[in-house]
Amino acid sequence: MAVIPTTVLDGHHRLQAAKELGFDEISIKRYSDLSDAEKEDWQFTENTHRRNMGESRKRDLIEERFLILDGRGEHQTDSEIAEFLGVGETWVRDTRHSLNSKNRIGAEFRDNSSKRDDVRQAIEDDPDASNVTIAERTDVSDPTVGKVRSEMEQESDIPSEQK
């Protein structure tokens, strides 16, 4: 007799119900050669896209995702995490800021493009805020904020003294 080790990634309750009802066979999807990280990612995605999940649970899952990735030494942009979880980027950004402020994940978690996007958004949200204030809000250096602000001014062709 050959025994094939099986791990149930999703559908634990349905499997238990089928056993209790005496089913001899059930339909399953078998995935072979998944790494532990791939299994974890698959479960995470399945749990996040459930229709009955409330906002607070989705926010918890965003936080959980950051902690998992940080623990693995892996990094994703806010937009990648938002797409992966099926949530808005604002939720992801807010959660990341919260985790960074509590030193639960490193500020290096973002790539430069994501940092610049965050700075741009912060400047658009509060154009009168100083570079230091924007830098504190977005976890970047104030010279980085100055560079992004200059780029935005050049794009709009509005001299900085008119702002």
Rank of each mutant, 00 (worst) to 15 (best):
Y31H: 14
Y31R: 13
Y31E: 11
S32Q: 15
S32L: 14
D33H: 13
D33C: 06
L34V: 08
D36H: 10
D36R: 10
D36T: 08
A37S: 12
A37I: 12
E38H: 04
E38V: 02
K39P: 06
E40F: 07
E40D: 12
E40S: 09
D41M: 14
D41I: 14
Q43L: 08
Q43Y: 04
T45K: 15
E46N: 14
N47M: 07
N47V: 06
N47C: 07
T48A: 15
R50E: 13
R50K: 10
R50P: 00
R50Q: 13
R51Q: 06
R51N: 08
N52T: 15
N52P: 01
N52Q: 13
N52F: 09
G54S: 10
G54W: 02
S56H: 05
R57A: 14
R57P: 03
K58I: 12
K58D: 09
K58C: 08
D60K: 05
L61K: 13
L61E: 07
I62N: 00
I62M: 03
E63R: 15
E63I: 09
E64D: 11
F66P: 02
F66D: 03
L67A: 08
L67M: 14
L67Y: 00
I68S: 05
L69W: 07
E74P: 05
H75L: 10
H75K: 15
Q76G: 05
Q76K: 15
T77L: 05
T77I: 02
D78W: 00
S79A: 13
S79G: 06
S79N: 10
S79Y: 04
S79F: 06
I81E: 03
A82I: 05
G86M: 10
V87A: 09
V87G: 02
G88L: 05
T90M: 09
T90K: 13
W91I: 08
W91P: 00
R93D: 04
R93F: 07
D94S: 11
D94T: 09
T95K: 02
T95I: 13
H97C: 10
H97E: 12
L99C: 09
L99D: 02
L99N: 05
S101P: 02
S101L: 04
N103W: 02
N103P: 01
R104F: 01
I105N: 00
I105H: 01
G106K: 08
G106A: 15
G106F: 03
G106V: 11
G106C: 07
A107F: 02
A107H: 00
A107M: 02
E108A: 14
F109T: 08
F109A: 13
R110S: 14
D111L: 08
N112L: 07
N112Y: 01
S113R: 05
S114Y: 01
S114A: 11
K115W: 01
R116W: 03
R116C: 03
V119T: 09
Q121E: 13
